[in-house]
Design a protein around this nucleic acid. Structure first.
Lengths: 215, 215
DNA sequence: CTGGAAAACGAACGGTCGTGCGCTAACCTG
DNA sequence: CAGGTTAGCGCACGACCGTTCGTTTTCCAG
């Protein structure tokens, strides 16, 4: 059903997602959001019954977008190292989008504030870490990585690399960030890649331009 | 001079620092802060002439504490790899303190909000990255690391590792975080440490317990 | 001990926050 | 085209925000 209510609700969440990427999930204000959409506060409020519901809806939409723009395309890459590489590239592109990665800001914002919103962020971030680990495990199975390679450890190191990239790029505005990430990726792989495999380099063209203009 | 005004001002900043570690620099509210201190809003406000000044004072105090608890003790470690290791250990301990690292939350919070507060965070984070890089450079000079090792790259990778630790520990509450960091540290060093040197492992006892009970 | 300076106070300002209510206007089914 | 459902609006609420002001208390030097 594509009724009126559904359409505006989607429009609201869409704009809210962009806004939350810049001011954070807490910083999201219903008044400002309604203003930007040209509708009334109460009209907007009626679609969600609380601010928390709005935040959860935003997180749902953001995860959906993340899957569409990062996970799904990356999974279409060949199994093993190329897929791992694709994930990092797409993630990098995503994080460079407008306002940076919503999940990164939300994570830092909520790491000490219990509640459903935090729970939602935690579980989605855990899912993503598991997805990364799964891709790494496949790389072992495919014979790209040595048997002793620990997929979870790989996921942790890739995750860390991306957080570093986010900080260096968005906060410190370091122009060498892409080089740093590339070198870091190489360094991480160096110890686990099989001797007869040449580790893939990052595709700068993918990583350079944002997949979408949102977090 | 240790007059009354100075003393209460210090007390305010001290509590504000703890509070900001949990609710963020923006989330810091003058009313709530005054409440927790048992003084009046206006009495508190008089010490700073704006909320922004208060935030800047908190950042100053936090950097001072970071230098005292992390940088200075680490610099007393022997030049080279031991010092690099000490920095990571102390940083880890610091980040595990109450509310996590204030700078991590502030960084994510402010990465898109220009102004003096952001500028303050950026420059202090840059200084810290440079301190890390300097320690790495010394490790090269001391012959612990190979000549081709890039100190700035090392700093980036250590920085990233810490951000990853912060997320895994504080958000995902992964009990294996310390192992992950240790393995990551080993992995980072593996490619740059000279063949005749045995890379140091992290001292868990230092990393385990918070240096102080604040961010 | 006193007088002036410094610090803390209480009350209030204009704003914005999230939320609720009642009414009108738009939609969509029958 | 009618009638009921639903979406949107205006208004107002209580709470809290940062900030200001005038007053009262506390301090400390002469």
């Amino acid at each position: 059903m594509n009724s009126r209510g559904t359409r505006t609700r989607e429009a609201i969440v869409d704009v809210a997602m962009r806004m939350a990427s810049m001011v954070g999930l807490e910083g999201l204000s219903i008044g400002a959001l309604a203003n930007k959409l040209g509708i009334s506060k109460s009209g907007l409020f009626g679609h969600f019954q609380s601010k928390e519901n709005l935040q959860l809806a935003v997180l749902d939409a953001a995860e959906q977008a993340f899957v569409d723009d990062v996970v799904r395309p990356a999974v279409q890459a060949p199994r093993g190292l190329p897929r791992v590489r694709a994930m990092l590239e797409r993630w990098l592109a995503w994080a460079r989008g407008e306002g940076g990665c919503l999940f990164v800001s939300a994570s830092a914002e909520l790491d000490d504030r219990p509640g459903p919103v935090r729970d939602h962020v935690v579980s989605s971030q855990r899912r993503w870490a598991e997805t990364l680990a799964r891709a790494a495990r496949i790389a072992v199975d495919e014979g790209h990585l040595v048997e002793e390679a620990d997929p979870e450890q790989l996921a942790f190191e890739l995750y860390s690399l991306m957080l570093g990239a986010h900080h260096y790029y968005r906060l410190l505005a370091d122009p060498a960030t892409l080089d740093r990430v590339e070198a870091g990726f190489t360094s991480i792989l160096a110890r686990v890649v099989r001797a007869d495999i040449t580790p893939p380099a990052l595709d700068r063209d993918v990583a350079r331009l944002p997949v979408r203009e949102l977090s």
